[in-house]
Simulated assay, not measured.
Amino acid sequence: MQRPVTRIPPQGEVQHYQTYQITRRRDTTVRAVCEQVACQAWRNGWDSVIDERTELGKAQAAYIRGESRRTFRETRTGEGLTVFRFESGQRCFADHQTVPELYLVRDGDWRGNPTGRSRRHTRPQDWVEDFGENQLRLVDQQQKG
């Protein structure tokens, strides 16, 4: 059961408001980098243990050494396995997916958008900057009376 929404009664007309919203589409996923999804391998580093006695292991080790473009230290175990130790802060080998956030600004409030004007920021930093500038405008207006 969904909790009822409690709203403070608005002081002004709907056209005097602007709504800042971060939302997601439920059915859309996109490829994401490790940092976006808080990947533990990216955050902490990881070990890839490879058995080079197999064809798959030989191919994996060759890829890591020659094509992976990642920084690693290579050691051997007593059982003859190769351990590639990757430091944190670099992309892991997984394909990550995420649901992208939408950074929206529209005129009006929960009662509606009388002008129909809305915009979508492509970068979260731009949305934050827009929001901050709006807050400063409100403070200025409040101080002027």
Rank of each mutant, 00 (worst) to 15 (best):
D47N: 10
E35Q: 02
Q2N: 13
Q18G: 11
T23R: 04
R119H: 13
A41L: 03
Q141R: 15
L56E: 12
L138T: 12
Q18M: 12
T23Y: 05
R7M: 15
G78Q: 07
G12R: 11
R3S: 00
R53G: 11
T19A: 11
C39V: 00
V33A: 04
G132T: 12
V139W: 14
M1I: 15
H96V: 02
N134L: 00
E101I: 15
C34R: 03
Y20L: 02
T77F: 10
Q142I: 01
I50C: 02
F84H: 09
V37P: 01
G89M: 01
Q135P: 06
I64A: 00
R3T: 06
S48N: 13
L104P: 03
R65A: 09
P10R: 09
V30E: 09
Q135Y: 14
W42M: 02
A32M: 07
A62D: 12
S68W: 02
R53I: 10
K144C: 09
A62P: 08
L104R: 09
I64N: 00
E67Y: 13
A59L: 11
C92S: 03
R117K: 09
Y63D: 06
V30G: 05
Q18W: 08
V14I: 11
E55N: 14
W42E: 00
R119L: 10
L81G: 03
N134R: 13
R111W: 06
L102R: 06
Q97W: 10
Q15P: 01
E129M: 08
S88R: 08
R69T: 05
T77R: 14
Y20W: 08
V83G: 01
V139A: 12
E133D: 13
R3Q: 04
T98H: 06
Q125E: 15
G89H: 03
E101Y: 15
R24S: 14
V128Y: 11
Q135A: 13
Q143W: 10
T29R: 06
T29F: 12
A41K: 03
H96S: 04
A61S: 05
T98I: 10
E35P: 03
S88K: 05
T28C: 06
Q60R: 02
E52M: 04
Q142K: 06
F72Y: 15
C34T: 00
P9I: 14
R137W: 13
L104F: 09
D130F: 00
P10K: 09
V139Q: 14
G78C: 08
R31E: 12
C92R: 03
R123C: 12
G66E: 05
F84T: 07
C34S: 00
K144I: 10
R85P: 11
A38C: 12
F93P: 00
Q90S: 05
R73D: 15
I64E: 02
D130Y: 03
V99G: 14
G66Y: 09
C34I: 04
C39E: 00
N113H: 08
W127I: 04
R69G: 05
V14K: 00
L138R: 13
K58I: 02
Q143Y: 09
R7P: 04
R106T: 15
C34V: 03
V139S: 12
G66W: 10
R3G: 04
D47L: 04
R43C: 08
R73S: 14
R3V: 05
R26T: 14
G89C: 01
T75F: 07
E101N: 14
D109L: 06
P114T: 12
R85T: 12
F86W: 01
T19I: 11
T29D: 06
V37Y: 00
H121P: 04
I50Y: 00
Y20S: 04
E13R: 08
D47G: 02
V128N: 08
